[in-house]
Design a protein around this nucleic acid. Sequence first.
DNA 1: CCGCGTTACGTAAACGTTTCCGGTGCGCCG
DNA 2: CGGCGCACCGGAAACGTTTACGTAACGCGG
Lengths: 339, 339
Amino acid sequence: MNIRELALRSGVSTATVSRALNDRAEVSEATRDRIRRLASELGYAPNEPARTLVRRRSDTIGLVWDTGYETLGFQHPFLQGLLSAVRNALSEADYHLMLLTTSGPGDADTTYLQAVRRHNLEGVVVLGTPADNRALRALAASDVPCSGIDVALSGPRTVRVTSDNAAGAAAAVEHLYTQGHRRIATVTGPLYLPPAAERLAGFREACARLGLDVPPEYVVTGDFFLNSGQDAVRTLLATEQPPTAVFAAGDQMAIGALHAAADAGLSVPGDLAIVGFDDIDAASLVRPALTTVAQDQRALGSAAVKALRGLLDADPAEPAEPWIVPTRLVVRASSRPGA
Amino acid sequence: MNIRELALRSGVSTATVSRALNDRAEVSEATRDRIRRLASELGYAPNEPARTLVRRRSDTIGLVWDTGYETLGFQHPFLQGLLSAVRNALSEADYHLMLLTTSGPGDADTTYLQAVRRHNLEGVVVLGTPADNRALRALAASDVPCSGIDVALSGPRTVRVTSDNAAGAAAAVEHLYTQGHRRIATVTGPLYLPPAAERLAGFREACARLGLDVPPEYVVTGDFFLNSGQDAVRTLLATEQPPTAVFAAGDQMAIGALHAAADAGLSVPGDLAIVGFDDIDAASLVRPALTTVAQDQRALGSAAVKALRGLLDADPAEPAEPWIVPTRLVVRASSRPGA
DNA sequence: CCGCGTTACGTAAACGTTTCCGGTGCGCCG
DNA sequence: CGGCGCACCGGAAACGTTTACGTAACGCGG
């Protein structure tokens, strides 16, 4: 069932059918309706490859997400929600989605780019992948529009969308402050990662604004994993003036902090309040449930495709400015004395 | 840079170039190498839409995954690993991956099918989506090969791949038995879901084989969410002969069980041992860490594409039998007295 | 030397669309 | 009533491949 057959059955030419299905003006309303009805009756589906061949655009964008769990590095805490959000935002804008891969690490360093060119992709969104990937750098350096969530691409047509890490961290501090805490420590992520650095900056800014002293030993760097949070709190509790609250820049570390507090015989939040970042699934499952700075996954996803679409019909000359989406503080038992 | 231009620069015809790049035999080794070198020099990438148009196959399979977190029903516990595994297995087999969507709930009930036909997809794998979806049923009923992970499609060319739920549950029971437990209860998932039913069956089989009595009140049905596990254990502890161990058919319910035990002042695993199923991220984060029946996500993913490929070049007449991939018991503190 | 099989390549026809360039009718203004 | 614009539609050329078919050149047995 192709357009020719449909044209025969409708008694018109293929040109008219094409115009009818694509809502062109040069076709009478009567024949348009007739053709459409017949098309859906016969279950006609236009052949996309043929369309993109002649139109020279595919209405398809690519999705780069290549941190398999095999690479034991940083792993994005909530891919699932992000992916869902990106998918929905794209399908609302009538785009199709194709997953990209560098098949194997030792492969050519242009694989992403190759795939984009082969399929006529109009842009890509990059998700939770370390930016030091060779193929990714080549892609960003090209003229392909790239929108990275939590990853800073450097290239002529790239844009970064991210949560407002600084404001989120600041909100955490303010929350602890209003709960009466004055000695607040933090455990950070690896500071070469932009989100980790921004969260620390927000922490410092809020403390300064509130007039809180932050002695050097109150800032300990972790690696976003559970153990580093546990270790950090252990050393924090061994200081002369232990903090009464700690802000962990990631939920896994925050849960590690929970464990360290329990090991020390401290009650949370009574003796030590704890706030995390991300709102991963486990945050609401642990006991006490974790207060945390939630990232709005849906907003991140749709911002990423909005940013990408902006890139698509923007002047390639002017650089796009980053998209910052707000966070939301979710107060749970780990910081709420009443609970 | 298309094949014509490449042919001009190579001094041969487009036919020869095509043959050289596709490893056809009717081309001399010398010219083949020359053309390939030139192609990679010029950064030539063949136009996939044009290829699929003439070859009538796209080398692309679709991925159905439409349980947004918005539909508050059952959500697959570990999409991330599965997706990664599927992607890797497919790219190793030189297939491309396209994400499908039914844009909106009230849409036509043939959306998946439409997308498959439009893009010439050769098959789809279905992931963590409730099977009562209209669009999904229409897809399964068609002649499109469908491989479902943890979802039983009914149609002429469908296959289901799943963990060995029964054996996994049995392994959990055996483990508890060798730890000395004789009064073992279970909290199940919704029994209309195949995995939940199979896990219960495995539980019963193992108990029978080991000569364990399973009074009716030892089997309580939950909904895979945390609260149901907590409630279940609360009622279990209120029975005349409370169990000394409980097998929860999902990790979230197992964590709920952990909470209920803590609320009752019971120590885990001393007073009550707990085993879960799935090995979600949180399982290793909670305290005590959860013993659980881990599903092998990588194996599930690659089994799904193997099953699909089997479907592709199998006789459509004979029905494919399901693929069962083994589970692995991960023993952690919640069932190990020594810890 | 003729015929024939094989190897290596070229010619051109598809694949299913979209769109440019027309070409009908028809109404309407002058 | 002639001409002109407009609304509607058809013919055909693209888009970039693959591949069936044809055809040279060449080796080789008879």
